[in-house]
């Protein structure tokens, strides 16, 4: 367990979290959080997380806000957005200025994510 790469997935939908874990825990050590605040706490307690994937639309703190705050404390980690929204100006801007490195569309494509994560790690 200890030698697998740790990734953090943040999504407010429980089913999404469970399915993501089910599908990716073979390849990665998947940590989960159901909102941005928990996500930030997880990052504090698990310093060896290398990639963070977050949903966009979440209550209280949206994906980009969460990532912005997370990146301030952990700038060396890679951050991605996975959302059911089409590419918005906000996301495009985040991609351009390097806040996030990848944008994944929902419904996700497992292969696309695996390939992308391989590249990132």
């Amino acid at each position: 367990m200890g030698n697998r790469t740790k990734i953090l997935y943040v999504d407010d939908e429980l089913i999404n979290l469970q399915l993501f874990d089910l599908n990716f825990n073979k390849s990665y050590n998947v940590l989960m959080a159901d909102n941005g605040f928990t996500g930030l706490e997880m990052l504090e307690s698990n310093t060896n997380i290398s990639v963070v994937i977050s949903d966009m639309k979440m209550p209280n703190m949206n994906g980009l806000e969460f990532i912005k705050r997370a990146k301030e404390k952990h700038p060396q980690k890679r951050y991605c957005i996975m959302t059911g929204f089409d590419m918005t100006d906000e996301i495009r801007e985040a991609l351009v200025n390097g806040l996030i490195v990848k944008y994944f569309r929902k419904p996700y494509n497992k292969n696309e994510i695996l390939v992308a994560l391989d590249e990132l790690i």
Binding site: L19, N23, T83, K106, P107, K110
Partner: peptide, 24 residues
């Protein structure tokens, strides 16, 4: 359409995840 797309994409993501899970 943007709102609708998001609301459809999320449950679609469940199905996709479930289908991926099943094939695995």
């Amino acid at each position: 359409t943007a709102g609708m797309a998001h609301e459809i994409n999320n449950p679609l993501n469940f199905i996709k995840g479930a289908s991926d899970g099943l094939s695995t």
